[in-house]
Nucleic acid binder design. Structure first.
Length: 367
DNA sequence: GCATGATAGGTGGCGGATAC
DNA sequence: GTATCCGCCACCTATCATGC
């Protein structure tokens, strides 16, 4: 298609290149090299009314109305103080085709508020190009049972029924979760969404800027893919909860593997260390002996007959700060231990105190 | 360092579709 | 007819970045 383009008061007819059946915004901007713009110039594309034209609506705009464009050198028009679609002409390749580039730099300045590093980082996670996304979806459909039926249905009807669409999303989300885990990156979700509309062009939503928002919209985090992911996540959490019931049903009595590499004492050496701790006031020595008797203490805790005697064997728990924390760290590792400490004042403390109030009075429990 | 805002992830509820 | 599953939506919470 030919359109009239004006640059620096100089009108010219330019052919708009096509890519994947869409008018290619980036190719069009490159074609503007006919105007001898300086290499690497920031180009601002406006319609004849002076309204900014972004990559994401370029294809639609060209198709729906007879337009002419003005190309401005962005560096010379900064006083406009309007968001500008900046295209670096020195860039050798454009990210995707025009309809797929909502997250590309060419459109993000106007479509998505870029007020924070987080959002910048998030939207820098661009989907790969159309072909790669298409291959991704194609491979996923071929690798899963029922995937070829979806391809067949599209071949026959040039469309997909609602039921098949759900099946498609389920297969792709399953593939995504398999490859990238329960919480795949936004860029991956976008790639699958882009892949769907590239492989099945008729599924593209012509009323939306990218055409795949109904599958995944990075701005709202919604779409069929997002919904399905949530369901998968919900189910996997339920499964984990189910599993955790088994793991936790014995509570503190559950035997755990410890990652501690500290050499553990046994037999007479262990008895000697326990005896030494009872009569020592040297905190580093006590802590060291506590470390080397950790395994013995764990066995004691898991022995129903002896667990109540733990403070008789290790009375230093009562007057030496840090011993419980040390044992906790040896049992669960630094990460979990630090989380426990962080949550202690606000979460655990009240609960432990409440539980302690229900304990029967004993040698180490005041009534 | 703290307050604030943006964002992503998690969760609960509702309603429709499907299986039994 | 009932139970279950799942899509969809709305809300809550935790985390992180930013500005003061």
């Amino acid at each position: 298609m030919l359109v009239q383009v004006e640059c620096k008061g100089n009108p010219k007819w330019i052919r708009i290149p096509e890519k994947n059946d869409c008018f290619d915004f980036c190719g069009f901007i490159k074609a503007s090299a006919k105007f001898n713009l300086p290499h690497g110039a920031n180009v601002v594309l406006k319609d004849s009314a002076g309204v900014d034209v972004d990559a994401d609506i370029f294809d639609e705009l060209v198709r729906t109305s007879k337009v002419s464009f003005k190309i401005l050198d962005g560096d010379n028009n900064k006083s406009d103080n309007v968001p500008q679609a900046e295209i670096d002409l020195s860039e050798p390749s454009c990210p995707g085709s025009s309809f797929s580039s909502i997250e590309s730099e060419s459109s993000e300045s106007t479509v998505i508020p870029q007020s924070s590093k987080a959002s910048k980082k998030r939207f820098l996670e661009e989907p790969s190009d159309c072909n790669a996304s298409k291959d991704l979806v194609h491979a996923a459909l071929h690798s899963k049972p029922g995937g070829s039926d979806i391809l067949k249905e599209y071949e026959q009807t040039s469309s997909l029924s609602d039921k098949t669409r759900k099946k498609l999303v389920n297969i792709l989300v399953a593939d995504m979760v398999e490859k990238y885990g329960r919480i795949p990156p936004v860029s991956i979700r976008l790639s699958y969404a882009l892949g769907i509309i590239t492989l099945f062009p008729n599924l593209k939503d012509k009323c939306s800027p990218t055409g795949y928002e109904h599958y995944y919209d990075p701005r709202s985090g919604q779409g069929y893919i997002a919904y399905r992911l949530k369901t998968v996540q919900r189910n996997s959490v339920n499964n984990l909860k189910g599993a955790s019931k088994v793991v936790y049903q014995d509570g503190p009595k559950t035997l755990r593997k410890t990652s501690s590499a500290t050499e553990q004492l046994s037999g007479d050496e262990c008895t000697e260390a326990i005896s030494m701790m009872k009569h020592s006031t040297d905190t580093p020595v006590i802590k060291d002996k506590m470390r080397t008797t950790f395994k013995y203490r764990q066995n004691l805790i898991h022995d129903p007959d002896k667990s109540s005697l733990i403070l008789d064997y290790f009375p230093r728990f009562l007057d030496t700060p840090g011993l419980i924390d040390q044992d906790f760290t040896m049992l669960f590792g630094d990460d979990i231990s630090s989380k426990f400490i962080a949550k202690w004042p606000t979460f655990y403390k009240q609960r432990v105190i409440a539980d302690c109030k229900n304990l029967h009075p004993g040698a180490h429990v005041d009534g």
